[in-house]
Design a protein around this nucleic acid. Structure first.
Length: 733
DNA sequence: TGACGTCACTTTTTT
DNA sequence: AGTGACGTCA
């Protein structure tokens, strides 16, 4: 019955069994944080302390929520149902729909995505005749979001907290934006938290209801919470005091979007009886990797202090490699070579699966060099992150159609679809509708109907708009009868939206139609259209093309929470990592966050970490030379193996840049350094290649010789096609 | 309404 | 360099 407890180490067990009262679990990387959280959840249920619906479990991402749900289900031996388990936003949306009326919304309010938010804010700013050139809307959007992150409604923004945006008009603009949202019966992401927190703060009855409901609260990735999230948690936990937060201050890498590590310190202050458990036994990585990561992070000040101890029996392992390369192309080549070598053999007679390797970069643009390289080598890879399903234009259009069906007052949705597919409703017509809507204080859709009645519109615009409005009436009518799945599908069809993509001959059109089909299929998974819309705006993700063995390519931020046998950490150069902008904007705090990012990167590795830096990198248009990252020096040298010219480059460039920079013309230097660094050394010029021989070319990858004359070869490359090359540029494959 | 030119931008990103 | 947003012109 309680054998699940036997699988835990003493600290983990303490974290699970300290059920009552506030508990802070400081969980280092790889110390079994998720296991503790899920086991604790199951423990609460299995010991009869609470029913599934009486535990509130909060995560940051949907992925984490899904994982926790699954693992709790496994521990319980049955699928876990009726749980209040989800992201902050999803849980808040659920609460907000219940109490919408108390905040001046209806339960069908729309949730706007980043795109809608910005469009709306722009409209507000235009209406206030703000010069959008001088005061770009994204700047104000960011300020508003930060306010919302801190739980500040417009009235609560004091002058001290104001920005000088648009000559001190930021606050009134924020207020106007909120008013517009309310008028549209809509929320942005930040509002979900803000409104619910505001409600809990001001309405004792609602607060009491949740106090009675939630006996236990569990929080994941606590170091990433922002202030509203903290306030929300504190309000909900203040009655029972049974709140358990799990986090790692050393992995706090999201301060730039409002996360406050200080919440960890605040926790102990607000819950004076709080107990603290540290998880320090790491079961993921080898001893050298842990030593390197610990040594690095020790350079940060103001940590809560945690040491990672190797917890695996087989913790011995190779040192962390640091490799210096001439430029980013060479760096990509080195990584490609190592990947291929690992794929063939891991040194112990085993092979490495590609899905156990990852390349973690600081910034998105770095992936390109690796992609190109992996393509020529024919190594499958996947990019993690990128556009989510619901961010695609066709899905957003489809959602807008569904939204306008549920909520005729949703002007943003109306604007999005009124001329998609093209109906000849241009700016002029839209302006007329806006004018009428504003003076009568009604939604655009209603304004359109009035303009039609009055005969204010002519010709094609009139006919098209009339068709659309009639269609909407009709679909809304069939909705209760046919169900929303059929109705939405019909709507997409009859509105001409599907046809628009069927007629589109561009390369993306078939993919978009596929996505739309998937959209309609997914509609059926929900009981209500509202539920579906919430899912789409809060939860829906790209289904990962996870089939097959692939190298993962992603940013360090995207890698948090993941682990791989082998991790490549390229681009450790001053300016790139630590990132110059982070330094400029965040000063020493910025530097420390960059260092935490480096710590996150290293601790993703189970067995092998390969850090690299290039002396030259093309940034935008021109080449820029750079020196190795200070983080490299901060690694404890006994756990690090430096190869290539890492040491040389750092020393000589720091002490006497001229030696390195001015001695040779660029081309000569490049040649020379490549000769030195390239490994394995290129074989002495091979005699000649026979037709049919397999060859490898640095740029084109693998191929088969189809013709040979003198030193010229015709090669059919597997990926790059047929090329004529000099034989000295290929080697036997 | 669409084509074209100009301009500024280019870290990280969930919901 | 490449992109995307915006404005102007036919």
């Amino acid at each position: 019955m309680t054998d699940y407890l036997d699988r835990l180490n003493p600290e983990q067990r303490a974290a699970v069994e300290t059920v009552d009262g506030p508990l802070l679990v400081l969980a280092g990387a790889g110390t079994g944080k998720t296991r503790v959280l899920t086991t604790r959840f199951a423990h609460i249920l299995l010991t009869g302390r609470a029913h599934p619906g009486q535990v509130l479990a909060v995560t940051f991402t949907n992925k984490a929520a899904r994982e926790m749900r699954e693992r709790v289900g496994v521990l319980l031996g049955r699928p876990a149902e009726g749980l209040w388990l989800g992201t902050f936003h999803a849980l808040c949306a659920r609460m907000l729909r219940r109490h919408a009326a108390l905040l001046g919304l209806t339960p069908t309010f729309s949730i706007l995505d980043a795109d809608d938010q910005l469009r709306l804010l722009k409209q507000v700013m235009e209406a206030a005749s703000v010069d959008l050139k001088r005061w770009p809307a994204p700047g104000l959007m960011a300020a508003i979001q930060r306010w919302k992150d801190r739980g500040l409604v417009p009235a609560a923004v004091t002058p001290a907290e104001d920005t000088d945006f648009a000559g001190g008009r930021a606050r009134p603009l924020y207020a106007a934006y909120q008013a517009r949202l309310l008028a549209l019966n809509a929320c942005d992401f930040g509002d979900l938290l803000l409104h619910v927190t505001e409600l809990l703060r001001t309405n004792a009855e609602v607060l009491g209801q949740y106090h009675r409901q939630f006996r236990y609260i569990l929080v994941d990735e606590y170091q990433d919470t922002n202030l509203v999230q903290y306030l929300w948690l504190r309000l909900l936990a203040q009655a029972s005091g049974n709140i358990c937060c799990v986090g790692d201050d050393d992995q706090s890498i999201y301060s730039w979007r409002g996360a406050e590590v200080e919440n960890i310190l605040r926790f102990e202050k607000d819950f004076p009886a709080a107990r603290v458990v540290r998880l320090e036994s790491n079961y993921r990585s080898t001893a050298p990797i842990l030593a390197a990561a610990s040594g690095l992070i020790a350079h940060n000040e103001g940590r809560l202090g945690k040491t990672l101890r190797p917890g695996r029996r087989d913790a011995a392992g190779e040192q962390v490699s640091v490799v210096g390369l001439w430029d980013s192309d060479e760096e990509a080549r080195m990584v490609g070579e190592r990947i291929e070598a690992l794929r063939r053999d891991d040194g112990q007679g085993g092979r490495h699966g590609l899905s156990e390797m990852a390349i973690l970069v600081r910034a998105g643009f770095q992936t390109r060099a690796f992609e190109e390289r992996l393509i020529t080598l024919g190594v499958p890879y996947r990019i993690v992150g990128g556009l989510r399903f619901y961010e695609r234009a066709e899905i957003r259009d489809a959602i807008a159609y569904a939204r306008i069906l549920v909520q005729p007052a949703d002007d943003l949705a109306f604007e999005r679809i009124v001329n998609v597919p093209r109906r000849g409703v241009g700016d002029a017509a839209l302006r007329a509708m806006h004018a009428r809507a504003r003076e009568a204080g009604i939604p655009l859709l209603a304004a359109a109907a009035i303009l039609l009645d009055e005969g204010a519109l002519k010709g094609r615009v009139r006919d098209a708009l009339r068709d659309l409005l009639r269609g909407l009436d009709r679909w809304r009518e069939t909705l209760p009868r046919e169900g929303y799945v059929v109705t939405v599908a019909t709507m997409l069809d009859e509105s001409g939206y599907m046809e628009m993509w069927q007629r589109d001959k561009s390369a993306e059109a078939p993919g978009r139609l596929e996505n739309l089909k998937e959209f309609v299929r997914a509609l059926g998974d929900f009981e209500t259209l509202q539920g579906f819309l919430d899912h789409v705006s809060l939860v829906m993700e790209n289904e990962e093309s996870s089939e097959g063995e692939r190298v993962s390519l992603m940013t360090l931020h995207a890698a948090k929470g993941l682990e791989f046998d082998t991790v490549f950490l390229p681009g450790w150069e001053e300016g790139l990592f630590p990132n110059q902008r982070a330094l400029d904007e965040g000063g020493n705090k910025g530097l420390e966050e960059e260092r935490r990012l480096a710590y996150v990167g290293i601790t993703r590795a189970r067995r092998r970490a390969i850090i690299s830096h290039a002396a030259n990198r093309r940034i935008y248009a021109n080449w820029q030379s750079s020196i190795p990252s200070r983080f490299i020096e901060e690694l404890p040298s006994e756990h690090v193996a430096v190869t290539g010219a890492a040491r040389l480059a750092r020393d000589s460039m720091l002490r006497a840049p001229s030696v390195f920079a001015g001695q040779f013309p660029l081309a000569a230097r490049r040649q020379q350094t490549i000769d030195v660094w390239e490994m394995p050394a290129r074989p002495a010029r091979a005699a000649s290649f026979a037709v049919g021989a397999r060859v490898f070319h640095q740029k084109f990858g693998y191929g088969t010789v189809t013709a040979a004359s003198d030193n010229r070869l015709d090669v059919a490359f597997d990926k790059a096609g047929a090329k004529r090359v000099l034989d000295s540029f290929v080697e036997p494959a």
